[in-house]
Simulated assay, not measured.
Amino acid sequence: MPTSPEGIAELYAKIAENESNRLTNHPMERELTLRAIRQGLASSIDTATSTKRIADVGGGPGKLAFALADEGHHVDLVDLSPDLIYLAKTEQDERASVGNKSLLASITVGNALDMPMLPEGSYDAVLLLGPLYHLLDEAERKKAIENACYLAKPRSGLVFCAFISIEAHLRDIAMRDPARIVEKKDFYTRYLADGRYQKLNESLTAGVQSFHTHSGDIRSFYARYFTDTFDFIELRSTEGILGGGLDAKLVDASSEIVQAWADLLFEKYSTNEEHLGCADHLLAVFRRK
């Protein structure tokens, strides 16, 4: 069964407020993701300007998009959920009302599987930090990345692709409901085979649908489809060794402490293969050829 865009939009309508606060409540995901984007942009062969053009496709309420706009970048935000786009527009309006010039260039409802109404070959970076782990079929994930490639600058544009790890989900159920692995044995046998986490609601439509994977499978996915399109730059985690909410005490910590932990995790614990399974999200970085 392919992914239901309506199901995803309905899910985020229910959890819009939580999604708006998610990166505040997970500071390591926020900080390590931003560091990866900054590092990628700093390595760009296009040094004509420090202001980069970024497409955030599936960027939700725009928390990372606004953070990048605060750093002076031109950012276009696209998301499938009208509710999350409404939150982004609300923040945009609030910023404009107090004279804050760090605004997004555009905010649009759109689907990563359809070609966003954005200019071809114009972006120094394209962010796919939400769509891929909601796309159940491999063909859909391939299509979303092909669309991102369409937007990226030839020979320099970066594409950042986030995935959720299977290990993260197994860790979470071991902490919250360990009996589930026995009580739903058939479900988890299928899940471990294909990474499709799909739960049907009372109307037998997908209430929850997501795709989880392994680091090795991400590399195999790249090798099957994209060796002629992209260079594989790196694969890193966005929580280091503090996945599963282990960064909770950092939510109320000072900026100095948060940055010190982010520096440590980014430099020491976010790219080594033995640490990738400790994270919730895996971030693959490609450069268009």
Rank of each mutant, 00 (worst) to 15 (best):
L282C: 10
E274H: 12
D252V: 01
L276E: 05
H275V: 09
S255R: 08
C278Y: 15
Y269F: 15
H275M: 09
T238H: 00
F266E: 04
K268P: 00
K268L: 12
T271F: 12
E256N: 05
L276D: 06
S270L: 07
A248F: 12
E239N: 11
D247P: 00
A279H: 05
S255Q: 08
G240C: 07
T271E: 14
A253P: 02
L250Y: 01
D263S: 13
H275T: 13
L282Y: 08
D280Y: 11
E239S: 14
F266W: 11
L265G: 00
H281C: 07
L264H: 06
E274N: 12
E267I: 04
Y269V: 04
G243S: 07
E239P: 01
L282I: 08
A260N: 08
V258W: 02
I257A: 09
L250D: 03
K268M: 11
D247L: 03
T271Y: 08
S254V: 05
I241A: 10
I257V: 14
S255D: 07
A248K: 10
L265K: 00
E239T: 09
L250K: 02
A279S: 15
L242I: 05
L265P: 00
E267V: 04
H281Q: 06
T271G: 12
E239F: 01
C278V: 00
S254R: 04
K268T: 09
A262I: 02
T271S: 15
I241M: 13
A248C: 06
S255V: 08
G240I: 02
L246T: 00
G245R: 02
N272I: 11
E256G: 04
T238I: 05
L282W: 12
G245P: 01
A262S: 13
G240F: 01
L265M: 15
D263H: 10
G277K: 09
L265C: 11
W261H: 10
G244D: 04
H275C: 12
L265Y: 07
A248D: 08
A262Q: 02
H281V: 07
E273F: 08
F266Y: 15
E239L: 02
H275S: 11
G277V: 07
Y269L: 07
K249F: 15
A279V: 07
L246N: 06
I241R: 15
V258E: 10
D280K: 06
Q259M: 07
A260D: 11
I241L: 14
S270I: 05
V251F: 01
D252I: 00
D252H: 10
E274L: 13
L276T: 05
Q259I: 01
A248S: 12
Y269D: 08
G244P: 05
S270F: 06
Q259N: 06
D247R: 01
G277Q: 08
S270H: 04
T271R: 15
E274Q: 15
E274S: 15
L242P: 01
K268H: 12
C278A: 15
G244Q: 02
H275L: 07
N272V: 10
E239W: 00
L250C: 03
D252Q: 09
D247Q: 00
E274Y: 08
G277S: 14
D252N: 13
D263L: 10
G243V: 05
T238M: 06
V251I: 13
G244W: 00
F266A: 12
D252F: 06
C278H: 14
K268F: 09
E239H: 08
